[in-house]
């Protein structure tokens, strides 16, 4: 069987396995709760207040440009003024919460199979690299779907409250959601690298938390403290502003950063998994 066919077969199995597990119900509930909280938050945003008070559209655009420029710079902010802040906020919150979701969903992707050695039924038939990548992509697909569900709840509130028209909301919402996917992939890859080193799911969970916190400490705290841009590249969220802009150079940097991180961490993960005893 060729490697791609192996990955596809194992990926589909991973998805089915996740959907069948009790975790799926818990995650669906969690998605609904986070989405609902997000929706309530949206109605409290200043822009929503401005819309409700029928503020001048020019004032609105100015307000948005200022808000966006704090994150993506003035030039990119100018191109984003058409997008409702609430919709961008949903994407931002998704990016903020995705490491937590990835930890909760992905921590046992590999370790549960290693713990009970079920993985042995697959390692004698499929390349270990295929097993690893399929599991990683399985977690990525699940997280992406959950984030889409959470965002959809937020978009519904945006539309229902008349904050933005359905077409505008969906256009920008889907675009922002797609922009967050490389970040989700980068986090998933880090989680898989850490989680696949352990045979005990609980240990894997705790270490993934510690690992993610470490990434934040180095990529955000130390990066600011030492004024080091390079340290910031460790933290996938650093690339969020670059990915949501329409500036090709920034988008390229954002993609290079997140995909580079993914290739590096998943490459290391695959190497370690092929070398380890199962």
């Amino acid at each position: 069987m060729n490697p791609l066919a192996e990955i596809v077969a194992l990926f589909v199995r991973e998805l089915l396995r996740s959907l069948r597990s009790g975790k799926a119900v818990i995650l669906a509930t969690l998605s609904f709760l986070v989405g609902s909280a997000l929706a309530l938050g949206i109605t409290r945003l200043e822009e929503s207040e401005l819309i409700r008070s029928a503020s001048d559209p020019a004032h609105m655009m100015e307000f948005r440009e200022q808000a966006y420029s704090a994150f993506v710079g003035m030039s990119a902010a100018h191109k984003l003024v058409e997008s409702p802040l609430e919709v961008a906020g949903i994407a931002w919150i998704n990016v903020f919460f995705c490491p937590l979701l990835i930890t909760l969903i992905g921590f046992d992707a590999m370790s549960s199979d290693l713990q009970f050695r079920s993985v042995r039924y697959f390692t004698s038939r499929a390349r270990r690299s295929s097993i690893y990548l399929a599991k990683m992509l399985g977690v990525f697909a699940l997280i992406s779907t959950i984030l889409l569900v959470i965002a959809s709840l937020g978009w519904t509130v945006v539309i229902a409250n008349g904050i933005a028209a359905p077409a505008v909301t969906l256009k920008w919402g889907v675009r922002f959601w797609i922009s967050t996917l490389p970040i989700v992939l980068a986090w998933t890859s880090i989680a898989m690298l850490i989680g696949s080193q352990f045979k005990t799911p609980m240990l894997s969970l705790l270490t993934t938390f510690v690992g993610f916190f470490g990434v934040w400490v180095f990529g955000v705290a130390f990066s600011h403290y030492f004024h080091s841009e390079a340290l910031g590249w460790i933290y996938p969220g650093t690339f969020t502003p670059m990915l949501i802009t329409l500036e090709p150079a920034d988008l390229g940097k954002g993609l290079a950063g997140t995909l580079g991180s993914t290739v590096l961490t998943s490459g290391l993960g695959v190497y370690l998994f092929t070398q380890r005893d199962v």
Partner: peptide, 17 residues
């Protein structure tokens, strides 16, 4: 490929399958 097959002693079958 399929020329080698294994019955591992202590590997649990995936319980939900």
């Amino acid at each position: 490929g399929s020329r080698l097959s294994v019955l591992p002693q202590d590997a649990i079958l995936p319980p939900r399958d």
